[in-house]
């Protein structure tokens, strides 16, 4: 069991994501997103304890955490109407202009390294107001000066319908805030045990640094209990391998 043990990195990330979701009415979690899923479920648990409206969480691939009845298109229809407040996107590459690449490296289509594909990014990035970018491997090969393929752009030209976009980028080293007007990332906090030099060494794009640089808060005992209890049990439905690895939850093969 994990009770009483200090927070694991995944728990720090999930707790940080829950903070980024504060006040959100409806959040959706897309493909290959176990830590964002855990963060969203934690945000929902926290929302029920503060007298606020309960955060609604939809996790793609889940039967239990899916209240859609109109097929896979429903998420996109709701998002187009402004009814999805937050979503998560990642990328094999993410650049300093918040462009994301989910397709592959090099000159398309002969990509030396091919990733799975763009999923809903080229739409949801445009219409969901709070898009949280995540990429756990923080390195110069993932956080690059310019992506090789733009699955979805961080910004759009004037006149293009763009009510949504990025608000933050979380990695295994730090949390960046997206500055919409400047079109640049601002380093917001360093995860416990990591340094500014390390972030500079491992980041392929320029970013702004504040005068005072805090450490990303670790989840307190209450949050850890929520993560290791209800959240772990819920996320195991969709991400059994993740739940077993991080939370020690074993689920029988159905």
């Amino acid at each position: 069991m994990t009770d009483g043990q200090p927070a694991r990195p995944e728990e720090v990330y999930a707790s940080t994501i829950a903070d980024l979701l504060a006040g959100v009415r409806r959040v959706a979690v897309g493909m290959l997103s176990p830590i964002p899923g855990a963060g969203a479920l934690l945000a929902r648990e926290l929302s029920t304890q503060g007298g606020l409206p309960r955060t609604q969480v939809t996790i793609l691939g889940s039967q239990a955490h899916n209240r859609f009845t109109n097929g896979g298109a429903e998420l996109f229809d709701l998002a187009g109407r402004g009814r999805i407040d937050a979503f998560f996107l990642s990328g094999g590459q993410i650049d300093g202009a918040a462009n994301i690449n989910l397709v592959g490296t090099g000159d398309y289509p002969a990509t030396p390294v091919r990733w799975s594909g763009s999923f809903g990014s080229a739409y949801l990035y445009f219409v969901v107001p709070r898009v949280i970018l995540f990429r756990w491997e923080h390195s110069r090969r993932t956080l690059v000066d310019a992506v090789d393929f733009i699955s979805a752009p961080g910004r759009s030209e004037a006149g293009v319908h763009r009510p949504g976009g990025p608000i933050a980028l979380i990695t295994n080293l730090c949390l960046f805030r997206w500055q919409k007007e400047a079109g640049r990332f601002l380093l917001q906090s360093l995860h416990p045990g990591h340094t500014l030099d390390e972030v500079r060494d491992q980041t392929g794009f320029d970013f702004d640094v504040p005068a005072v640089l805090p450490v990303t808060p670790s989840p307190d005992a209450r949050r850890l209990a929520l993560l290791r209890g209800p959240v772990a049990a819920q996320i195991a439905e969709v991400y059994p391998a993740f739940a077993q690895q991080v939370f020690g939850v074993s689920t029988p093969v159905s």
């Binding site: 397709v103 398309y108 445009f126 699955s151 293009v160």
Partner: peptide, 9 residues
């Protein structure tokens, strides 16, 4: 469809 504009897709 909304979105898409500015993407390499």
């Amino acid at each position: 469809l909304r979105g898409l504009i500015g993407s390499d897709l």
